[in-house]
Write a protein that binds this DNA or RNA. Structure first.
Lengths: 357, 357
DNA sequence: TGTAGTACAC
DNA sequence: GTGTACTACA
C-alpha cells in the first residue's frame, strides 16, 4: 500500500511537463525511501531519472516496494484537473491496477478524486553507476535554457567547453555560428560552494577550490584527474555511440540511487557531515538565495563535448522546478544535467556526439 | 572594416521585426555616415528604406563604404539570441563574408558571439528622389496601427482622405464598410510643429501653418500646390501602376539621403537653423513628449488615395520603434510612411491603387 | 498570450 | 476526409 501526500500539486504538474515529451510510459518505483522513476526517452538516446524523497512528502507511507506503471500522458491529464496549490494524495493498494489521486483545496471545501489506470511496464531498470566527473558547472537554469534554445535556432548540436575561466557553448549552423561564453564569477563560486553537500554523490569541494585558485595548467590538472573527480551517478555506455540505445539495461532492480550512499571509498572524500538533516537545510537555503546567480565551475580537467541541442532544450524544461542547474561532464561520457528541488531531483543523461555525426 | 556598437540590442530586434516580413534579403550599405538599407518588398510593390546614423551608435567606424548582403531571416535568428539590453557590436572586415555580432551583458559576465554568413546581393540601389508632398499627417503610431489592422479585417484596401479637418481612413468590405475619421487637434499641431526640423527633407512649416489657419477653399489650395509642398524623398514611379515593380532601379549608388541636404532651393524654405546638432535636440524632445498625441495635418491640397491594407499593416509594425508616424501623400504618388527614432529612421513607400483594382 | 502544427475523433 | 482539440512553439 502506498500513500503519499504532497502539499502543492504544481510540483507534480511541473515534473510531468518536464518529462512527458521525452517519455510516454514509465514505472514509478515506490519504496520506503520514496518514489523513483527512471526511463529512456522514446528514441532511447537520453535517460531521465527522477527521485522524490519520502521526506519530501507531507506524509509518506509505502509498506513494500511497488512499481506503478504509469502512462505519463494520462497522468498529465489527470494532474491538469488539480489546482496548482491543491494538496495531492497518491494512493495505490498492493497489486492495485489503479493509482488514486485526491485533490484537496487548501480550505478543503473541495475534494476531487481520480483513479488512473496503471499498466505493466517492463522495468529493465537501467544501471546508473556512480561516476566521477571531470567538470561540474553550476549555473542559473534560466541561463542554460536560454542558451540552448538560442543555439538550437542556429544548429543541431552544441559543443560545450569547460575551462577555468568559464564555460563556452558553441554551435555551427547553416546561416550562422554562435558561441556563448559564461564567465565564472566569484559570487557564484561562493554561493554554490555547498550546493552539493547533501548529495549521496557530492563533489570534492575543497580540492576543487584549491585547484581553481592555483593556476596549474592542463598538465597538472590531468595528473590530478584520477584522484579528485566530481562524483555523481553515471551511466554505463554502450561501446558504440551511435545515437541509439546508449544505455545498457541492467537486471539489478534496486539500489541505483541508494547504493551510492555506501560507495564512499571510491576516489573521493566528503567535505562535511553528509547527514541528511544538515544537508537538507543547506540545500533549501541555496535554492532560495539564487536570484540571478552567476556561474560556478569545479573541474579537474578541461572538457569538451558535443551534444544534440534538441535534447538539451527538452531537459531545460525542468527550469520550472529549480532555478539552478548543474552540468556534469567528463570526456566521452554522457552528460548529466541535474536539477534539485525541495522533494528530490531530476537528472538527465545524454551521450555525447562522437566525431561529426 | 566596419565596427558599430549599439547600446541596446532591442532596437535592432525591433527594426528587423519591422522589415523581415517585407524583405528577405537586403544590403546594409555601410559608409562613414552610417548604415543604410534600401529594398523592395518581396513582391516589388513596396519599398523600405532604413537609415541608421553613425552618431546614433555608441561607437561607429567604417573605413570605406561596404555593402553587407544580409539574409534578414538569419539576422533575425541571430538577434533573437541577444537579450534586449545587451550591448551589440557589429563587425565586418573588408571583403569579409561574415558579419560578426557580439552581445555583451551589461555586467559583462556573459559574452555571446555570432558569425553570420553574408551573401552577395545585387544592389540596384533604387532612386528615391526628393518629393514635395501635398499632405503630411502626423499621428500616434499606435493609432495608425490600430486603424489599419481594424480595417484590414473588413476589406483589402483603404481609402485615405486628407482634408483640413482631419484624415479619414475608409475601407469597403464584403460584410461591412468601415471608416475612421481622425480630427486634427490644436495640441497635436503645436506638438509636432517642429517634428521635422532636423530632416534633410523638412516640411514648409510656416507656410503650412498659415494655410491651414486661413480658411481658403480647395481652389486656393490648388493654386499654391506647386509652390509650397511638403517636401521629402520620393520615389520614381513606373508609368503603369499595376501593383508590380513600382520603383525604378537607379545606378547611382549613393546620395539618396544626403543629397537632400544640398537641395535647399527647391520650392521650400527652412524655418529654423537646420544644423544637425540643433536638429537632433529638437527631434529627441519631440519623440519623448508624445504621450498620446493627437493628429496634426499639414497640407496644400486635398488628397485622396487608396492603398493595400496588407502593406500598411506591415508598415505599422514599426510602431515598436517610434510612437509617432508620419504619412506623406500626393495624389497619384506613392505614400511615404515614416517613423523616426533615436538612431535614424525607417521609411516605407507604397504606390496607390488606381481605379478599383 | 497567441498561433501553428499535429493528433485524434467523427 | 474533415473537423476539432490539444500541445508545443513563438
Amino acid at each position: 500500500m502506498l500513500e503519499a501526500k504532497l502539499d502543492q500539486a504544481i510540483m507534480l504538474k511541473r515534473l510531468l511537463d518536464a518529462i512527458k515529451e521525452l517519455v510516454t510510459d514509465a514505472n514509478f518505483e515506490c519504496t520506503e525511501e520514496g518514489i523513483n522513476l527512471q526511463a529512456m526517452d522514446n528514441s532511447h538516446v537520453a535517460l531521465v531519472s527522477v527521485k522524490l524523497d519520502a521526506v519530501g512528502f507531507t506524509k509518506y507511507r509505502c509498506d513494500r516496494p511497488m512499481p506503478l506503471g504509469v502512462n505519463l500522458g494520462s497522468l498529465t491529464k489527470v494532474l491538469k484537473c488539480a489546482k496548482d496549490d491543491d494538496v495531492v494524495t497518491l494512493k495505490a493498494g498492493d497489486d492495485a491496477d489503479v493509482l488514486n489521486l485526491t485533490y484537496e483545496a487548501k480550505n478543503s471545501d473541495r475534494i476531487a478524486e481520480y483513479d488512473m489506470k496503471l499498466m505493466d511496464i517492463d522495468s529493465d531498470t537501467l544501471g546508473i553507476p556512480d561516476t566521477d566527473y571531470d567538470a561540474r558547472v553550476t549555473l542559473p537554469a534560466a541561463e542554460f535554457a536560454r542558451i540552448v534554445k538560442d543555439l538550437s535556432t542556429l544548429g543541431e548540436s552544441v559543443r560545450i567547453e569547460v575551462s577555468k575561466e568559464g564555460v563556452r557553448f558553441a554551435s555551427d549552423g547553416e546561416g550562422a555560428n554562435g558561441s556563448v561564453l559564461l564567465k565564472q564569477t566569484d559570487a557564484a563560486r561562493e554561493k554554490y560552494a555547498h550546493y552539493n553537500d547533501d548529495d549521496e554523490a557530492s563533489g570534492t569541494k575543497d580540492e576543487d577550490e584549491e585547484e581553481e585558485d592555483g593556476e596549474d595548467g592542463e598538465g597538472a590538472k590531468k595528473k590530478k584527474s584520477k584522484k579528485s573527480k566530481v562524483k555523481t551517478e553515471d551511466v554505463e555506455m554502450d561501446g558504440e555511440d551511435e545515437g541509439e540505445e546508449e544505455f545498457k539495461a541492467k537486471s539489478d532492480d534496486e539500489g541505483e540511487e541508494e547504493q551510492d550512499e555506501e560507495e564512499e571509498g571510491n576516489k573521493k572524500k566528503r567535505k562535511t557531515a553528509p547527514t541528511k538533516p544538515a544537508a537538507k537545510k543547506s540545500k533549501k537555503s541555496d535554492d532560495s538565495e539564487s536570484p540571478d546567480g552567476g556561474v560556478s565551475i569545479e573541474m579537474n580537467q578541461h572538457v569538451t563535448l558535443t551534444f544534440s541541442l534538441k535534447y538539451l532544450v527538452n531537459f531545460a524544461k525542468s527550469s520550472t522546478l529549480c532555478n539552478v542547474v548543474q552540468l556534469m561532464m567528463s570526456n566521452d561520457v554522457p552528460l548529466l544535467v541535474s536539477y534539485k528541488f525541495a522533494q528530490g531531483h531530476i537528472r538527465y543523461y545524454l551521450a555525447p556526439k562522437i566525431g561529426d555525426e
